[in-house]
Design a protein around this nucleic acid. Structure first.
Lengths: 220, 220
DNA sequence: ATGGCTCCTACGGTATACCGAATCGTGAAA
DNA sequence: TTTCACGATTCGGTATACCGTAGGAGCCAT
């Protein structure tokens, strides 16, 4: 664990494992053992154990009945669940976030500006999720934000898989996402809470639409 | 940790601490130290540490910036957030749960039967939450159930506080809850998905209504 | 060749020990 | 009396060690 800004070894281990799972270095189904990962990461089993626990509650790992730890396999069914929950949570969050506070308006504008300047697909994806999270945060319901964040890791995992499978096509469709976000922010500034809710709903439905799904999936 | 059906000491410690928090033996704001709790529970620090982590993610404990562990204080604001989320999640779950599978219908009927025979207020409360959880589970969305369960502990905590403050009055109003649940099950068997969604929404609104709030709260 | 049994290994659960940092109490100085 | 500083204590983070058990490999019997 040579360099990492995390204050605790457990957090550093969690970050690293999370990244390795996202990057596909630890494909779904991989069995992880505390001792082995501890050796590999150069720490003892205790921080690794805590990292496993954290990643499990984020849905990236899975504990079997017998205590084994496995990188979770995501099925199209899993994705449909995530989609259904976004469709449930985010429009409501948008409605509650209206009207936007000065602070959150600025944060969203910064996000859009960063998105316009983004160079890589991963960066655009991260900013995309960040935009949505900002709106959930703006709703003022801390627990709602917590629920959303608990879905975020799995979402990122899915998007990562999809990007690796359709590296070419996504870059174009991504432009649409950014424009859609600008439209949403404009809606917050010029229209009503129900309008924002409706627009967010349509945005997520559209997002579901252009995602290439169910032809190939990373599980099994 | 003399007797407990939990297979692991960490789970047993978690159960015990959870119960003590619910019972009010560990009032909000109480500072918990790993070593002290380990001595008190007769285990080492490791299981206690894991129990703390689990209870923190359940919202019953709180880690301060400096790493201290404190029993969380619930404010009326917290309760409003929980209420808003139930109002968002559960009606949708009811819609998705329609039509009820044989299995879930039986489970709900068992629940109502147990409620009719219940003797103590705590038991009725537990069965009440169980009824709602069953419907969320019947929605078929495992992640939705996970989100709901993550709210349950805090909900139980709140209800526990309220019961201790209004021990007399609640017993009567509880009868209404049970009847309301029967109505909901009937709706599932005789009407439509939107009807169930609407009824669930009204049920939760009614629940919010009769709860004695904002006059006294356990925080600060 | 196949099914089952046994032994061995690897893994997770737990206890204990060590360390640095934060906290609190105490006493000295202003 | 108040305040500041310093030492003792506590606490959380981490490492290491021990134990029981589950899984797997190899062997034997059929």
């Amino acid at each position: 664990m040579s360099h990492s800004q995390s204050s605790t070894l457990a957090a550093a281990a969690e970050d690293r494992l999370r990244r390795e799972i996202f990057d596909g270095q630890l494909p779904p189904g991989t069995r992880l053992a505390e001792a082995a990962e501890a050796r590999r990461l150069g720490v003892s089993r205790v921080p690794v154990r805590e990292a496993f626990a954290a990643l499990e509650r984020d849905g990236l790992l899975e504990f079997t009945e017998t205590g084994r730890t496995v990188v979770k396999k995501l099925t199209p069914q899993d994705f449909e669940e995530l989609f259904a929950l976004r469709l449930l949570l985010e429009p409501s969050a948008a409605r509650a976030a209206f009207p936007l506070s000065q602070k959150h308006r600025l944060l969203l504008e910064e996000n859009l500006s960063a998105t316009r300047n983004a160079k890589t697909l991963d960066e655009v994806t991260r900013l995309d999720l960040e935009f949505h999270q900002l709106i959930v945060a703006a709703s003022g319901n801390a627990r709602l934000l917590k629920l959303w964040r608990s879905l975020r890791s799995e979402l990122e995992l899915w998007l990562g898989y999809l990007h690796r499978q359709h590296r070419d096509q996504d870059l174009n469709t991504r432009v649409g996402t950014a424009g859609s976000h600008e439209e949403i922010l404009l809606c917050f500034q010029t229209r009503s809470a129900p309008a924002c809710e409706k627009l967010m709903r349509e945005h997520i439905l559209g997002w579901r639409e252009w995602l290439p799904l169910s032809d190939e999936n990373p599980s099994k």
